[in-house]
Amino acid sequence: MQPNQFNVDAANKLKIVSLVSVGKHPQSGRMRRADQDSRAVELGLKLTGDNHSGESLVVLHAGDPGEPNLRSYAGMGLKSVRVLQLDPAADAILPLGQHLQQCGADIVLTGVRAESGESSGMVPYQLAEKLGWPIVPRVADIVSVKGGVAEVLQALPRGQRRSVMVKLPFIASVDSAAPEARQSAFGPASRALMDIEVVSASVDDVRQAWEEAAARKRPKRLKVVKAKTAAERFKAATAKSQGDGGKVMKNESAAEQAQAIFDLLKEEGVLR
């Protein structure tokens, strides 16, 4: 971890809540701290500064407080983990929304999608809709918070980043492109306090009707040749994949040729 280079004018006044869930390793299937959620905690730790850990950063989980893997978030250097205790089959949105409203959070960080359960990634959106806050999806970093406005770096496909300005309070889902989470230490994890609050929530009836099974392997799409004659099939099997014959510039001067390339690059929008 680099020394705190984060640009904060009121870091100790900033209240950050990281929502965490219990993750599942994609290969072994073992329960673990979720990858994106731990990155959200890491980002929260960076925002509050390491000195304030446990005071302005709240790590919040809705579900079973007895889950041992919750403690591995605390092992990242937190004194406590707050848990809203509710039935595993219950809908967590309502109690979470109420809690966030009460505790006066400035920034709420979540993962993009959970590694267990429905994993629809809808929690941040539903919370944002309920609270009327803006949501910034797929955040790679929060660069600065100044005067109640945060500058956020969004992760785009192909390694690109987009800068977005957003007013506090807001909800951000943290992408896998965010800085990797620090290791979890076992000792502090087992000493951490589980701050339990029992809440009531309605049971998620819709989900009761669903059937869940281990993921089937998806069939790979075959290249189907819809040829009617043997000659067409033969051509499809042997022909090289070629474009439909592009423009060829042969006799122009180098300057004209370069201009044509440049125009195409600009048209495609790769020159920024």
Binding site: P26, G29, S120
Partner: peptide
């Protein structure tokens, strides 16, 4: 649809 980070299949209406 895929659930649990792509490790389960959910069959639903």
């Amino acid at each position: 649809c895929r659930g649990a980070g792509g490790t389960t299949d959910i069959t639903r209406s």
